[in-house]
Design a protein around this nucleic acid. Structure first.
Lengths: 329, 329
DNA sequence: GGCATAGATGAATATTTATTCAGAATACTC
DNA sequence: GAGTATTCTGAATAAATATTCATCTATGCC
């Protein structure tokens, strides 16, 4: 970055532009340089703090909803992100990502070991994580790759991005998320390289996960789970999914052949993680979220306003509340 | 001005734009309105003070030069306006106008009676006078119109502009600046309407004038003064001009037929004005300025840096300094 | 000195922002 | 409740700003 320009010159240009309301072309005539240079001078002036722009605080989070959810569901911490009138799920994802990022960043201390899953909201969020380095950070991929085309919403990609942004080490599972059968899965797990990463998932401080539903499954969408598989899972009581693992209304993993084909953090591992944050957008997941909380799979939540309202409307049977509370306290 | 938008919405848009660095189009997608509306929202947010832009102080005046000139020439107040490297006279005029305006405004109290002359630098300055109303202000045209085409640099136009800006009354002389002969001039002065305004010039608190030279005369340029007239004036010792009146190196009005044909504030009237500020740009007027000061025609100065330096280089004979000082103290 | 390297610069241009305009929505009057 | 005026809105467009690119300039380095 240049250091050739005098502060005097910068102050003059900045004053004429920001205070006196001249256009850059006028300022350029005034200072006898090109408009292009004025544009650069002004950028530098902002950078150097010669120009300060302050904006009245905007509170992106809905604190009263947060408090209600935290209490009623006995969660550790909750961020409810305000959304604008008439927002689509798409919009909600972007908003949750944007304003959820600082919150998530605050959950992660230096020296943390972070497990990260994939998902569209997660992607928006990871993109916007603040830049400051976290010393001694470790990022572990919480789930294999869904298919061979690694998309920008896969855990692999997001973990890499997070590690790069915060200057940490990234451990990749290097395996598909779903294997043909249990035997193959175990063979993979037998590989030193893969097992060591998987075991690392048992020593994680913070996990960032999404919550899936049966109705709107990314696995069906991407063709790794058939409609038939899905209906079988439903029969076994599945109401939600986290990291490719389906659970029932109590948050217990459903028995099914599917269960043994998944390569991702186990639900018991997840329960042992002190900080598990669900990064969620949309109103169609309330049942799945509530069940995950009940099962101790989740103790923090980042969610959009509408999703939060839906979750509260869903409600929790009083008995369960006590249980969940016991779990997290 | 509209009042329909919520502060919440404004803060959100402002934050996304100014703090988070999104473009207006991106903010528009976020907030689900058109980019046009974001542009309007942001303008409103700035207006309402939701967005505050502050710029490190730029000091447009050259204080050490000001002090030296004030002392050496015994002036009441001086503003030396900094100019950029390689500025033309044109540039200097604009700069003096821009940064001289607040200084000149500060010279003028409510209830003032201000006499104003024409000139290009004066024009730049008047354009940029701050907007606040001055109670009970009176503006008087200090000099008739140079020719029948009233240009934007004529006293008539500038006086009108000043009065409008500050909400004061404007008195126009309603006469040409130069009449064919003394008799005609006296006939004009005999008219009640004109005489009353001219007499008002004797009760002025503040006068704003330019200083002309013989070499670079706007009157020759506009064809009301012939080269012949000019050389006659030179023979009589003329070194400068103020409001169409030529004076010698002691600031005394030169005897010549020309003298009796001018319709403008008289030099005696000018000497009686407590605050006479010369609004000047350029380096070619030092002799004329120094003479005017010597003759008590000027006791304040607004000038560009180069002009100020030239004036100091010109110097003042010590004896004269004492005289000038006596005059203004 | 010659040569290389790293800015710095402004013209041209791409991109972004502000304004205009015409239609839609809302409030206001009778 | 119809008519009228006012405000609000986004699409199109005008205007302003940022970026690219080729050229120039200064400075180090042998």
């Amino acid at each position: 970055m240049s250091n050739h320009y005098s502060d005097e010159q910068l102050r003059l240009a900045a004053r004429l532009y920001y205070l006196d309301g001249l256009g850059q072309t006028e300022v350029a005539r005034f200072v006898k340089v090109s408009q292009a240079k004025i544009s650069r001078l002004l950028a530098l002036a902002r950078e150097r703090g010669i120009v300060r722009i302050s904006v009245a605080e905007y509170e992106p989070r809905h604190e009263s909803l947060e408090q209600r959810i935290r209490r009623e569901f006995g969660l550790r911490s909750v961020a409810v992100i305000k959304t604008v009138e008439g927002a689509t799920v798409e919009d909600a994802r972007r908003t949750v990502g944007h304003f959820g990022a600082p919150f998530v960043a605050s959950l992660i201390q230096p020296e943390s070991v972070v497990a990260i899953a994939g998902g569209r909201t997660m992607r928006e969020l990871v993109q916007l994580l603040p830049e400051d380095k976290k010393h001694g950070l470790t990022v572990v991929q919480a789930m294999g790759s869904i298919d061979s085309t690694v998309g920008p919403v896969d855990a692999l990609e997001l973990g890499r991005a997070m590690a790069r942004r915060w200057g940490g080490a990234f451990y990749t599972l290097n395996t598909p998320a779903f294997l043909p059968d249990r035997k193959t899965r175990d063979a993979f797990l037998g590989l030193e390289q893969i097992r060591s990463v998987w075991q690392r998932l048992g020593r994680v401080n913070v996990a960032l996960v999404g919550i899936g539903t049966l109705e709107n499954s990314v696995f069906v969408e991407r063709g790794v789970l058939s409609a038939d598989d899905l209906s079988k899972l439903k029969q076994r009581g599945a109401v939600g999914e986290v990291c490719g693992r389906f659970y029932d209304s109590e948050g217990r993993e459903c028995e099914s052949p599917w269960r043994d084909r998944v390569m991702s953090i186990a639900l018991e591992q997840l329960r042992a993680v002190p900080q598990v944050a669900g990064i969620i957008a949309g109103t169609d997941r309330s049942t799945a979220i509530a069940a995950a909380i009940r099962g101790g799979l989740l103790n923090s939540l980042v969610i959009d306003e509408a999703g939060a309202a839906a979750l509260l409307a869903e409600g929790v049977p009083p008995a369960r509340v006590a249980k969940a509370k016991g779990k997290t306290k």
